[in-house]
Design a protein around this nucleic acid. Structure first.
Lengths: 215, 215
DNA sequence: GCGGGCTTACTTACCAGTAAGTAAGTGTGG
DNA sequence: CCACACTTACTTACTGGTAAGTAAGCCCGC
């Protein structure tokens, strides 16, 4: 509807490219989070920012590419509250994990997106599967390293493979608790259950009571 | 699983209604397991038993109903190898959980189906969500009860809510490890990691070393 | 400082593919 | 002979993706 009268209505300023991309990424996170990747359509995403699905493709090229950027976006947002610091080590890391769990209890959308995409990723040929696998691998590396640091601090020598097993268990318990919490928030206290489980695993691994405390 | 599916046999005898239903359920388990519910189509399922998708609908009415029966079917199969017929309690339960994990390492398909459907179920309005939530709830009840039994045996009094927290953590760690194992079987030893994690949680909860041993 | 050309950010229209579901017809075993 | 298992043929509803057109902003010679 070209408006030749010059009677400029509320002149919605056209967003810049980067603003728009950010809007779309946020919308896509919500959509993929609430419907999953396959079930969430580009039309859904587009509707949330008030454009058409072709507009979304203009910015991201394909649905797959959009997913990739959503995943990276999540990482970016996730690290944001980490005050510019790089990933902490030793006990600091576990404190960070519990803190994240506490924060996550108020960010249902993001948790849901992560849970849905992770679950979906084990299907054959899913575009997110390598990302998720890589992520798990990196996390296991970081956490097992932190376990080794703690062991060194306390002069305990760990059996072969023990740090890795503990790391996998820590990640597993966090993911699993998120799932249960999403399905029944009343039944599971995300932060306290996470803290409890991590302390349990560390205590058993290091052979002495471990409290995470802090925060 | 009876039926050798002599699929090329020209004069194969027509399966009875119940045989056919069983075949379809097994096929649907494989399909939903490898592709997820939304991505797995009725055509896929039908092709696996050598009929058309309309034939599947003839037996199950709708895709949603098929999913429901698949879930019930899984329960039925799952309980089959549980000779005793009723769920064990106390330490016996935890032994059973670890044994199941060991068996699962050779049943990738079933594990995948469970993981995919569980993950998918947190999407809005998913037909399996109430089933999964219910399942979690029942499991938490059974496991927390077993924890209480162990505590009583050992004359420890547990803080309020501790059995439930431990139960949630046990379930979480099993689910989470399955996810990691599916994405990278080399990196995670399902059985040993599960045993380790459950022992850790029980030890921390009961305040004394717990070995599950057995099997 | 302003008109023209170029780029950006979309829209509309359409494509081919695939989904679930339905209705009606067909072959066959009992 | 006829109920049932199933197929064929179809509809309706979307999907992601493409092509082409358009309106708005931005830079530049003049």
């Amino acid at each position: 509807m070209p408006d030749a009268t010059g009677q400029a209505a509320p002149k919605a300023k056209r967003p810049t490219r980067d603003e728009r991309r950010e809007e779309i990424l946020a919308a896509a996170t919500r959509v993929f989070g609430s419907k999953g990747y396959h079930q969430g359509s580009l039309v859904d995403v587009a509707a949330q920012v008030g454009i058409t699905h072709a507009g979304v493709l203009h910015h991201f090229g394909s649905k797959d590419k959009l997913l990739w950027e959503v995943l990276e976006y999540r990482d970016r947002v996730d690290v944001q509250h980490l005050e510019g610091k790089h990933i902490p080590g030793g006990m600091e890391l576990f404190r960070h994990l519990v803190t994240t769990a506490r924060l996550n209890a108020d960010r249902r959308g993001i948790v849901q997106a992560y849970a849905v995409l992770t679950g979906e990723s084990v299907t054959d040929g899913h575009p997110a599967s390598t990302w998720v696998a890589e992520r798990f691998s990196v996390l296991r590396g970081e956490i097992s390293q932190a376990v080794r640091e703690l062991a060194a601090e306390r002069d305990v020598t760990l059996p072969e493979g023990e740090p890795e097993r503990a790391a996998a268990a820590v990640i597993a318990v966090m993911d699993g608790l998120q799932l249960q919490w999403l399905l029944d928030p009343e039944a599971v206290d995300l932060a306290s259950a996470t803290g409890f489980a991590i302390e349990s695993i560390l205590t058993a691994t290091l052979g002495a009571a471990v409290r995470i405390a802090g925060s």
